[in-house]
Design a protein around this nucleic acid. Sequence first.
DNA 1: TCTTCGCTTAGAACCATTCTTATTTAGGAA
DNA 2: TTCCTAAATAAGAATGGTTCTAAGCGAAGA
Lengths: 142, 142
Amino acid sequence: MVLSEEHRLVDALKRAGLKLTPQRLAIAEALTGDETHPTAQELYARLKPRFSSMSMATIYNTLGALTKIRGCRELEMGGATRFDPNVTPHDHAVCERCGAIRDVELESGEAPDSEPCPLPGFQVERIERVYRGVCAQCAEAA
Amino acid sequence: MVLSEEHRLVDALKRAGLKLTPQRLAIAEALTGDETHPTAQELYARLKPRFSSMSMATIYNTLGALTKIRGCRELEMGGATRFDPNVTPHDHAVCERCGAIRDVELESGEAPDSEPCPLPGFQVERIERVYRGVCAQCAEAA
DNA sequence: TCTTCGCTTAGAACCATTCTTATTTAGGAA
DNA sequence: TTCCTAAATAAGAATGGTTCTAAGCGAAGA
């Protein structure tokens, strides 16, 4: 599962004619299967021990490249850009207490962009939904 | 319309026990009826001519206070925080070409938070929807 | 009038992100 | 395998948005 996911990213890099550097492979690996929607800084902190000379620029360049080739998706939440390796249509639930962001699969059968035209003449390409509330863990703790 | 909107903000400030300083009134006035969802910087630029000594801190403090007392709403979009004076439940449409953010009223009769439970145990408080696509103006220009 | 406390100001500080430049390296060609 | 070159990395400076800090100001109450 995680392996095939990682392979998906590696394939995407190859197909785009981008070089498979150790740093890129490590970033792809770190992002793959990470459901916490990490920031660039968090990925940097996680990889720094393995690549002591790694630069933030490499993190940002790689994440930017992956985003452009649809290997991952950017989310603007909590004051920083977060990266989501899940590029299938889905929504997000954000806990107002702990800040955790979780993926929310679409209802089976739900067309991803099935909402009515919101504004006259506006051509909808996709819809992003954010559910805000309290996650099960925080609700239980309170 | 705009007058009563501005009055709403002034009332909210009063009720919260906050002082009605000239700066705060000017910020409330600038925000009221502004449908462009301005950033703090944009409001600063707009007010600087009138208050040559105004500080960014005052803008941020006031917008923060207004947000806390529900006089406006923060949106994280386009790399900066934007402020929306419309605090009734509504969605947003973002043009991928020009970046314009427009309010989208809920379908009449649509309950604001009527979606099914997205995750087991997650208590939904509200749902934010962002329609991404191309606005009528940009579609026509192309 | 005096005091107090909230507000504003100026600018430093902070943090995420982008840019610049020199150096290194992956991957194709010979 | 070796060589070559375009692409990628590293280091750190620069940028831009936002927050913090310290000092001063001013309105409201004693």
